Measured scan of single mutants.
Amino acid sequence: LQLFIKTLTGKTFTVEMEPSDTIENLKAKIQDKEGIPPDQQRLIFAGKQLEDGRTLSDYNIQKESTLHLVL
């Protein structure tokens, strides 16, 4: 599923993930694309901070959802 990642600077980029992927996987993918170390990434969806060990489906993140990346 394609997700939109929006940064505080207003930049938006996309990543391609599976619902079974963990937040950790997502942070690694963001590191590949943007060079931001996972330990500096905080991801927010629907007002909640996402925890590394959980999956996208745990948070009911669907295709074309927008996640906010806070550094």
Results as ranks from 00 to 15, higher is better:
L1N: 05
L1C: 03
L1G: 06
Q2R: 12
L3E: 00
L3F: 07
L3T: 02
F4I: 11
I5L: 03
I5S: 00
I5A: 00
I5H: 00
I5K: 00
K6I: 13
K6D: 05
T7H: 09
T7V: 10
L8A: 11
L8H: 15
L8V: 12
T9L: 10
T9E: 07
K11N: 10
K11A: 10
K11D: 09
K11S: 09
T12N: 10
T12F: 11
F13D: 01
F13H: 03
F13T: 03
F13K: 01
T14R: 08
T14W: 09
T14C: 04
T14K: 11
T14I: 13
E16C: 04
E16R: 09
E16N: 13
E16D: 11
M17P: 02
M17A: 15
M17F: 14
E18Y: 14
P19S: 12
P19H: 10
P19V: 07
P19F: 10
S20L: 13
S20E: 12
D21A: 08
T22K: 08
I23G: 01
I23V: 13
I23M: 03
E24V: 07
E24F: 12
E24I: 15
N25C: 05
N25P: 01
N25K: 11
L26E: 00
K27R: 07
K27V: 01
A28Q: 15
A28R: 12
A28E: 08
K29Y: 08
K29M: 14
K29P: 00
K29E: 06
I30H: 00
I30A: 01
I30E: 00
I30N: 00
Q31T: 12
Q31R: 15
Q31H: 07
Q31F: 13
D32W: 15
K33M: 15
K33V: 12
K33A: 14
K33R: 11
E34L: 15
G35T: 03
I36F: 12
I36C: 03
I36Y: 14
P37N: 08
P37A: 11
P37L: 09
P38Y: 15
P38M: 14
D39C: 06
D39W: 10
Q40H: 13
Q41N: 02
Q41S: 04
Q41H: 03
Q41W: 04
R42W: 10
R42H: 14
R42Q: 11
R42L: 13
R42F: 12
L43Y: 05
L43F: 05
I44S: 09
I44H: 13
I44V: 10
F45A: 03
A46Q: 12
A46K: 13
A46Y: 08
A46F: 08
A46S: 11
G47Q: 05
G47A: 04
K48H: 15
K48R: 12
K48C: 04
K48N: 07
Q49R: 09
Q49L: 10
L50M: 06
L50W: 02
L50C: 03
L50D: 00
L50R: 00
L50S: 01
L50T: 03
E51H: 12
E51G: 04
G53V: 08
G53A: 10
G53K: 11
G53T: 11
G53I: 07
R54Y: 14
R54N: 12
R54F: 14
T55Q: 11
T55K: 10
T55N: 06
T55C: 03
L56S: 01
L56Y: 01
L56I: 13
S57H: 11
D58G: 03
D58N: 06
D58W: 13
Y59G: 01
Y59I: 03
Y59N: 02
Y59M: 04
N60Y: 07
I61A: 02
I61M: 07
I61Y: 02
Q62F: 13
Q62K: 14
Q62W: 09
Q62H: 14
K63A: 11
K63F: 10
K63E: 11
E64N: 15
E64G: 14
S65K: 04
S65V: 07
S65Q: 08
S65Y: 07
T66V: 11
T66F: 07
T66W: 07
T66K: 06
L67Y: 03
L67W: 02
H68V: 10
H68W: 08
H68E: 14
L69Q: 01
L69D: 00
V70Q: 06
V70H: 11
L71E: 08
L71A: 08
L71V: 15
